[in-house]
Design a protein around this nucleic acid. Structure first.
Lengths: 351, 351
DNA sequence: GTTTAGCACTCTTCATCTCCGAGTGCTAAG
DNA sequence: CTTAGCACTCGGAGATGAAGAGTGCTAAAC
């Protein structure tokens, strides 16, 4: 495999990404950094096509990269520019700080990505599953009306209103919260099961029958915690790129087919996957650029962009890269702080 | 204006809604309830066109209703079927119960609408603006970490984590919540202003400087309450109807231009507005079917469907109608219950 | 006077055809 | 090994024509 052929392949991909049109030998020969004639390029192009890196939409058209062509380009040929500080700053502002709840953090990341790339952004957060319940509160707010507050070690907070058949006395409330804390504090979200809640309903009902809606409420909240794993933002952006099949896109936006498995199964580091390489996530001609972020050294979710296969990888990969790093940093840095450590020490605070 | 002409106009609209193709005299003459020949219909169609109710895409095509045609059809000609009980039940299940928070209620309504009509659904909720703060809680959850809980009379609950510079003593926390309750309880969301919070920050800081982030947090939450006014669900559905301009739709999904004003300004009762009648909300050939729901007799928001002009009005209007009634009922019925009435009386509850 | 049948007319749609040009592959010369 | 030149191919744009749907108008029928 020729040095020059690689250079030409890279030039073709760049050009195709830029224009969206099949690119011919003449166009390449005109580029500054290419010093051979169109005829030479034609020969190399024929060779590249033979090898499966290029294809022709029809006989007398220019060449278009194949999956293999993109693969080679992405894995070997492409030179990634460093993200300028101004862009970094922009992301930093959009993301939030160490105090921002994790959930919001990754939502912000998705919003930033879709805004800056004009593609769809996708984020998952497996953190909630591994986090543990750190606090459950039940707060009376009206006649027979209570708000349940569920807080986890990773900073997600869920609430829900709950109506009971009777008002609770102070002691009853005390009993309930004490019981719940005893049974749930420190339990990881993943461990929470229906059986567990069934048992709790039984136990609580033995004390007072009308407490069971509260347990049910908590059970529903924990369901929420487990579910909020995959978010797709800016899906409609995909509809304006005409490389993609509209029907497939609409279907995908509705069910997010296969995406969750694909993300779950990914390795660490930035990865690019093509829709057509993969049959579960099946938007033809699409490309998925993902990376996993970490929290305290452990993989905690992934974040990426979905676009047409001819997206500007040189631009998007640095974005995704920077964001995962930043998120990993923001999450890990304050890790021990967000863990519940019991009620704050009662030692004043005035300077 | 002839009785027969009206009948023919209605038939044309029905047929056009059904097929999406311009409808000719022959097609109408074949309908069961029409007993005149195609030639007669042709004459009437010519007259209707003269009067501005119909138009021809081109000389030798069938007729298509104009705005005026639809207007007349909707206002006078259309016969609305009663919604069958099975459908009603379906809606009831999708909506929720009297215990469902209002916010969720209308979100459910939008979800139900978009699912059943295959159009976009839009809901607004001006209720939060008119509701009053019924409870503010500050709950310690970790080292210098507090969760603020804001509850309003209409059942919305907002929370937010807040990091302080120092931990608060029990007395400090007590002081703060007491101060906040004193100043905010019963205040309507609309009345909340930046100046108010500025004053509170000043007052609170005088006691202890590091309390101000909490006030800021509350201020942000109240901002949330005010903002969550307009939701569009299923916007992508509009992209699959080819009567609508894709570009306009994408733009609209992004900014929801003019919609809020339009809904705000609407009268009560079901209304149908066409995109082209209105220049602020400007998707050509679109139709907006809205109705205002009430809470305790007062208009509290609106709910509706956006679709192509040739949507099945006979189907959708009963949907929207039923939903507004049901929501009005669900919201009003439990109104006094959701109002805060102080902590529940401490009089036990076991049967 | 209103309704209907018949007919000529119009205009879109679809298929077919032709021409143009971009881009190629091949060959032969540098 | 590279380049110039040239014949070749094929898709896209525009032109042409037949088919079909639907109309408007006229004259006859009710």
């Amino acid at each position: 495999m020729d040095e020059r052929k690689l250079k030409i392949l890279a030039a073709i991909v760049d050009e195709y990404v830029r224009t969206g049109e099949p690119v011919g030998s003449k166009a390449i020969s005109k580029l500054e950094h290419i010093n051979v004639s169109a005829a030479t390029i034609r020969n190399d192009m024929a060779a590249l096509e033979q090898m499966g890196y290029l294809e022709q939409p029809h006989t007398s058209a220019g060449r278009v990269p194949t999956f293999m062509g993109y693969r080679l380009y992405i894995d070997e040929l492409m030179t990634l520019p460093e993200l300028p500080d101004s862009e970094k700053k922009r992301f930093d502002e959009m993301l939030g700080s160490k105090d921002t709840p994790e959930e919001l953090l990754i939502q912000n990341a998705a919003a930033a990505l879709t805004e800056l790339t004009h593609c769809a952004a996708v984020v998952t957060n497996s953190a909630p599953r591994f986090s543990v319940i750190s606090k459950v509160e039940v707060i009376p707010t009206g006649k027979r009306l209570y708000v349940i507050l569920l807080i986890t070690s990773n900073g997600s907070i869920k609430n829900k209103a709950c109506r009971l058949e009777f008002d609770l006395s102070h002691e009853q409330l005390e009993f309930f919260t004490h019981y719940i804390e005893e049974n749930l504090n420190g339990v990881s979200v993943e461990e929470l099961s229906e059986e567990m809640f069934d048992k709790m309903v039984a136990a609580v009902s033995a004390y007072m029958i009308s407490l069971s809606p509260l347990v049910k409420g908590i059970s529903e909240l924990s369901e929420d915690l487990r579910q909020q794993e995959l978010t797709l933002k800016g899906g409609e952006k995909l509809l304006s790129c005409d490389d993609l099949d509209k029907m497939e896109v609409v279907k995908f936006i509705e069910n997010k087919n296969g995406l969750s498995d694909l993300l779950e199964g990914a390795f660490s580091g930035i990865q690019v996957k093509f829709g057509s390489e993969n049959d579960s996530f099946a938007i033809g001609n699409s490309s998925l650029i993902v990376s996993k972020y970490r929290k305290g050294g452990k993989e905690a979710g992934s974040l990426g962009v979905i676009g047409p296969m001819r997206v500007d990888y040189k631009k998007i990969i640095p974005y995704v890269d920077y964001l995962t790093q930043k998120i990993s940093y923001l999450m890990s840095g304050s890790e021990d702080d967000t863990l519940i450590t019991g009620p704050p020490a009662d030692n004043g605070g005035q300077p």
